[in-house]
Amino acid sequence: MRSGGADGPWIALRAVVAAVFAFALGPILITAAVSFNGSARSVFPPEGFSLRWWGEAFSARWWEPMGFSLRLAALTALVSAAIGAPLAFALVRRRFRGKALVEALVVGPLVLPTLVTGIALLQFLHVLGLGALVGFWGLLIGHVVISLPFCVRTVAVSLRAMPPQLEAAAASLGAPPHVVLRRVTFPVISGGVFAGTAFAFVHSFTDVNLSLFLASPGERPVTVAILAFLEFGFAPTLAAVSMLSLVIPLVLIALLERFVPIGDFLYADPGRRR
C-alpha cells in the first residue's frame, strides 16, 4: 500500500497497530513489573523494588511443580515425536484404506475442546480401574493425545515440501531403504520433527484445560499449582512464577530457532505449502 502513495492511511494504521501491540504485550509487561514489587499486594505501579518474590518463585514450593511440568513436557514431546513422525510418514507416503479416518483421529484432539478430552480420560481411567494413574502417567497420556497433532502436522508439512525424487535417486544409486531413511529422508525432515517436538513441549508445558482434571494433589504441573494458589489471593509471588513459566518456553524456542526455522511452521502459511 505504501507504493500507492497512501501515506496517510499507512500512518493511521501504524498508530492502530501500536495500540494493538500495547494491548497484547501490556499485561505481560505489567506482570513482569509486579514481580519486582516491594509490597505484598498485586498493585501497579509497583511500590518499591524487591527480589523476594523471585526468591519465593525459586523456592522448593514452586520448583517442585515447575520441575514436574518440565519433566512432563519433555517426556510428552519425546513420545509425541516418536509416534507422530512415523505416523506422518505413513500418512504422506503410503496409501492405505481408512486413511481419512486416521487423519480424522489425529486432528480430533485439536478440534474437540481439550477440557472435554480431560474429563473423558479421567472417567475412562476410573472405569477401567486405573484411577491410580491419575497424576503423572495420566497426565502424560493426556498430553501426548493433545500434542500429537502438532508433531504429525509439522512432519507432514516438511515431508510434503520434500521432492520425492530425492529418495528415488538415493535408492537407484543402491542405498538400501534404511540408509535412504537415515541419510536422506530424516535430514530433510528434521526441521519438521524438531518444530513438532518444540510445539509439543510448549503445548504440554502451558496446558491448563486437560491438566486440571488429571493432576493429583502431589503430582501437578505448575499451571494447576498456580490456579490452586489463586484461591488464596494474588500475591506477587504468582507474578514471578508466571514470568518464570513464560521465560522457559521462550528461551527453549529462541535457542532452537537458531538451528531450525521453527517459526516457519507457525506462520509461513502452511496451507499453501501442502
Binding site: 501490556g26 499485561p27 505481560i28 509487561l29 505489567i30 506482570t31 509486579v34 498485586s42 501497579f44 510448549v202 508445558f205 502451558t206 496446558d207 491448563v208 499451571t223 498456580i226 490456579l227 494474588f234 504468582l238 507474578a239 508466571s242 514470568m243 513459566s245 513464560l246 518456553p249 521462550l250 524456542i253 507457525l266
Partner: peptide, 15 residues
Amino acid sequence: LLASVIVRTYGWYVI
C-alpha cells in the same frame, strides 16, 4: 502463544 493462558490472564487481574 508460548505463554500459558494463566500468565496472560494474570496481567489482567493486576490491571
